[in-house]
């Protein structure tokens, strides 16, 4: 039997043997990262908006609020995820009832992602040209109207790109949570690939993670490009 065929045969055997585990791991990875991203956006978007509008020279300048929020976000972003994961165990137990498994991992993931999301939103909103804000002010728009009718809609394509970046970062974070029994593809890679020296399982999980990341990136870029009216000629 030629060598390449035997390699394919080995992969096929592996896939049939670990099929259920791989499907479950992929499903858990998607479920956890999407849910954590969604909750993080619910919490992080208002935070990001507040940071932008309270900046000096913006529509509702407020230095103390701006500085304090910026500080909190930076602290949140400085804590290594693996530390956060362990440190939050009591809190996670309180919320979910357990500290292991996919559902439990959503808690630290969301908390790690929220300051990240706030910065992503901030980055998107500050790209909106000052002239547009001034125009809206000259027409008597309230700060609220400027946020919802100018800042958010004008930066939507950029926000969408930020969402795909966030999901991809969380796929990576969640794989780390596999080390402490968080489930998902990372858990599989650690338990089978690392502890049991099954490097073929490790290889397949990595390929799956690469595919997930590629697809999310493609979908995000595609959606952002299609909805951006600046691209219409």
């Amino acid at each position: 039997m030629p060598e390449s065929l035997s390699f394919l045969q080995a992969i096929a055997d592996l896939l049939s043997e670990f099929k259920d585990l791989l499907v479950l791991g992929t499903w858990q990875t998607l479920y956890v990262t999407f849910l954590a991203t969604s909750i993080a956006y619910v919490l992080g978007t208002p935070l990001g908006i507040l940071v932008v509008v309270t900046a000096p020279g913006s529509i509702a300048p407020n230095r103390p609020v701006h500085e304090v929020l910026g500080g909190i976000i930076n602290i949140g972003r400085s804590i290594p995820f693996i530390i956060l994961l362990v440190a939050l165990i009591p809190f996670t137990r309180l919320v979910v009832g357990t500290s292991i498994g996919p559902n439990a991992t959503i808690v630290p993931l969301t908390i790690a992602a929220t300051p990240f999301v706030a910065r992503m939103i901030e980055q998107s909103l500050i790209e909106v040209e000052n002239g547009l804000i001034e125009m809206a002010q000259s027409m008597g728009a309230t700060s609220r109207q400027i946020i919802f009718k100018v800042l958010l809609p004008e930066s939507l394509p950029s926000i969408i790109r930020g969402i795909s970046i966030t999901i991809i970062s969380l796929v990576g974070y969640y794989a780390m949570a596999g080390a402490v029994g968080g489930g998902g593809l990372g858990d599989l890679a650690i338990r089978y690939g690392y502890y049991r020296y099954k490097s073929d399982v490790m290889f397949v999980t990595i390929v799956l993670l690469v595919i997930i990341v590629e697809v999310i990136q493609l979908l995000g870029n595609g959606a952002a490009k299609r909805m951006d009216k600046r691209n219409i000629r």
Binding site: M135, A136, M139, G140, Q145, K149, K229, R230
Partner: peptide
């Protein structure tokens, strides 16, 4: 709202079409 203003750059909302750009101050 009682004083109109135009600028050197038109400052149009790029994600809104012509109709909806003109509707902006009315919505406001």
């Amino acid at each position: 709202r009682e004083i109109g203003m135009i600028f050197q750059t038109p400052n149009l909302l790029m994600q809104r079409n012509v109709e909806r750009n003109i509707a902006f101050p009315l919505e406001v």
